[in-house]
């Protein structure tokens, strides 16, 4: 398998890595660059756990060839916290008990971020649609939907969301 030099941006940093033609973005990020926040759930494009943003679009890293990301900006959950601390989504996931075992959480956050970046005032249905490709086996999804809606409200207000303290 031939190799090529992949030039891209990872969480804002310019990079150039030698990648094999058959190497997936998951393999590159998680297993070679130790970006462990990108988690492997199924390696067959069905669970959404490895979701990252490629030029702002949510992508399944496990079925994305790294070589197709030439010149792209790739964002993982490591890029979420800003200078003021946690991203509104991260704070809302904590406040709404949206992370239980935590394994789907980073993929879920990136799917939600892709939505809020283009639609700051999503409806409940739009939130459900945006995370529809991400499987969570713990929460039953309701706390996640509540968290995304609360994060949207908080982001619009320019503040961290108020703690709702839903406990089920």
């Amino acid at each position: 398998m031939s190799h090529l030099t992949l030039r891209y941006r990872l969480n804002g940093n310019e990079r150039a890595d030698l990648v094999a033609g058959d190497e997936t973005l998951l393999s590159l990020l998680r297993y070679r660059l130790d970006t462990t926040s990108v988690r492997q759930g199924c390696r067959q494009g069905t669970c959404g756990t490895c979701t990252v943003l490629v030029d702002g679009e949510p992508r399944l890293a496990c079925i994305t060839l790294a070589a197709t990301c030439e010149g792209c900006a790739i964002e993982t959950a490591d890029s979420l916290p800003g200078s003021g601390g946690l991203h509104p989504l991260q704070q809302a996931f904590m406040d709404h008990f949206a992370a239980q075992c935590g394994f789907c959480t980073t993929g879920m956050l990136m799917a939600a971020k892709a939505l809020l970046d283009v639609n700051p005032s999503p409806s409940r249905e739009e939130v459900i649609d945006a995370i529809g490709g991400n499987i969570c086996r713990c929460t039953g999804y309701e706390p996640i939907v509540e968290a995304v809606l609360a994060a949207a409200t908080a982001a619009r207000a320019g503040a961290t969301p108020p703690a709702a303290h839903r406990h089920c």
Partner: peptide
């Protein structure tokens, strides 16, 4: 009374270490 999970911050920042990490 509400109590925050002790592992929540690790989960939302992706820093929680699973065995494969």
């Amino acid at each position: 009374r509400p109590t925050q999970r002790q592992d929540a911050l690790g989960h939302v920042t992706g820093r929680s270490r699973f065995y494969e990490d």
